[in-house]
């Protein structure tokens, strides 16, 4: 049995795609490098829009993760089938979710964090995202699927 059917896998990819895109657009780079000038991509330079998108997909990702965890408990076999790169990616996503959620808390009114805390969170969040992209690229090139057979 597969841990995730095709539709589920596609949803997961879409969530991660938009999280990465809206994540990188938190930094003022898309306007500088003309990407926001591409017709249809102007929103990438609108910080409040990309902020909302990142938040919406974060909610979806959290829901998805909760689903996967409980589903694999019911399946019993679930977690045992995950490949090594799969495990690495899961831990990276968990790290992204934890650092991301603390950043969300930081953004609430009345929460005061110092520079070192915010910088630590931002850098580890960004580092984990880049790491995720690299591991994903590796597993794409060397054909390492999520599920070990």
């Amino acid at each position: 049995m597969k841990i995730l059917n095709n539709a589920g896998h596609k949803i997961f990819l879409v969530i991660l795609f938009f999280m990465t895109l809206s994540g990188f657009s938190q930094m003022p780079i898309f306007k500088r490098y003309y990407i926001a000038d591409i017709p249809g991509l102007g929103w990438l330079a609108q910080f409040y829009v990309t902020h909302m998108i990142h938040y919406i997909f974060a909610g979806l990702l959290i829901g998805f993760a909760a689903y996967m965890v409980l589903d694999s408990v019911f399946n019993k076999t679930g977690f045992k089938k995950i490949s090594r790169t799969g495990y690495i990616k899961i831990w990276i996503i968990a790290g992204l979710m934890i650092t991301g959620l603390v950043l969300v808390v930081k953004n609430l009114s009345g929460i005061y964090m110092g520079h070192s805390m915010i910088i630590f969170l931002d850098i580890s969040h960004l580092f984990l995202c880049v790491l995720f992209l690299m591991v994903s690229l590796y597993s794409l090139i060397f054909k390492k699927p999520w599920q070990a057979d």
Binding site: Y48, Y55, G63, Y67, D71, F74, L101
Partner: peptide
């Protein structure tokens, strides 16, 4: 300006329950 984000942050609290509910429903 931060109000929409705050609202979505609150919605994030519901997200895991929705996921758990979906998995339970499927089972």
């Amino acid at each position: 300006m931060m109000a929409d984000g705050t609202l979505l942050a609150k919605a994030m609290i519901i997200a895991p329950f929705a996921g758990l509910f979906a998995a339970f429903g499927k089972y």
